[in-house]
Design a protein around this nucleic acid. Structure first.
Ligand code: FES
Ligand code: FES
Lengths: 156, 156
DNA sequence: ATGATCTCCGATCAATATGGTCGCACTAAA
DNA sequence: TTTAGTGCGACCATATTGATCGGAGATCAT
């Protein structure tokens, strides 16, 4: 149904929480542990743990072991894009099955199929959209996205 | 994984086919039947039938019963948006579960949740995107979408 | 040094959504 | 009236996702 998974939901909540802790008050050394987030948002602890592990593996957050351990952002909230978050959890963004086909594995309808190109276009557009929105945008009352103009694309 | 279902894929192929037969303008003589499309694109006949039924129920195509029956576009290809097609098959576009919650059924994390608003923004943006692209765009070699500029939003 | 606390990671089970199949009723042309 | 087609709902199979469990390794407090 073109929707993101619950895990991604959890990831967004967690990141939002971590970010707001690090940004909001003057507590630079403050790490957030899994339990704290899980209880705050009613997320199954073990599931959230896995989600956070994925995020950490993808370099979005840093993990600190041992007691008093926990997570903190690996980068500024402004550098973390929604696209990156989603892809960390769900794998490469693929609006349709045959967009990331491995070599040699084409769907049989390929040669008859003329929806492939347009779909890839759409996929790209969605990616642009998600890539232009960062964690920071989710934090403040910032006006958020506002689809990026095609002509000013790639300004970065 | 933020992807559209195969049924929707089939719907797009079928519509693309029907449209290309009619070539954008309604030519009342030529109807296309399910079997023809199914065989052309290697789609399970019964499944495609259901997909076409959904499309017909949603007013995108007209069905004609009896022998020599089949389907034809109910509207010009330029009037059929991708968003409409997708929603006909998959129901209302909902990037996240709680975007279309029924009254009285809020997820428990709602009051703590600050990702809701941004997600709805994203959802809306994606909708705009899909709503600005029509079947006609998928047909020709038209430059397609080209994300709509934020500043010129709502010009239609 | 030792134990307690916490993350890390792989395996596994359950719930749900999706893909695909049947069978029959209905409709319209020949 | 026969026949080729859609309309439609129930149904099963499979894939994806959500959630759970158990143990290994790291770090800090004592
Ligand atoms: S469905 Fe795979 S290429 Fe079109
Ligand atoms: S998860 Fe439902 S409101 Fe945020």
């Amino acid at each position: 149904m073109l929707k993101i998974s619950k895990k991604t939901d959890y990831a967004l909540m967690a990141l939002q929480h971590i970010a707001s802790v690090q940004f909001g008050d003057v507590t630079p050394g403050r790490v957030v542990n899994t339990k704290e987030i899980a209880e705050e948002y009613n997320i199954p602890l073990e599931l959230l743990a896995k989600v956070l592990q994925s995020l950490s593996k993808n370099g979005l957050i840093e993990s600190h072991n041992g007691p008093k351990g926990g997570y903190l952002l690996a980068r500024s909230a402004r550098q973390i894009t929604i696209a990156h978050i989603i892809e960390s959890i769900e794998g490469p963004l693929a609006i349709t099955d045959c967009s990331h086909e491995k070599e040699g594995e084409f769907c049989m309808q390929r040669e008859h199929c003329n929806i492939r190109t347009p779909l890839l276009k759409i996929q790209d557009s969605i990616y642009q959209l998600l890539n232009n929105m960062t964690l920071a945008d989710m934090l403040g009352g910032t006006p958020l996205i506002t689809i990026q103009s095609a002509s000013t694309q790639g300004v970065e």
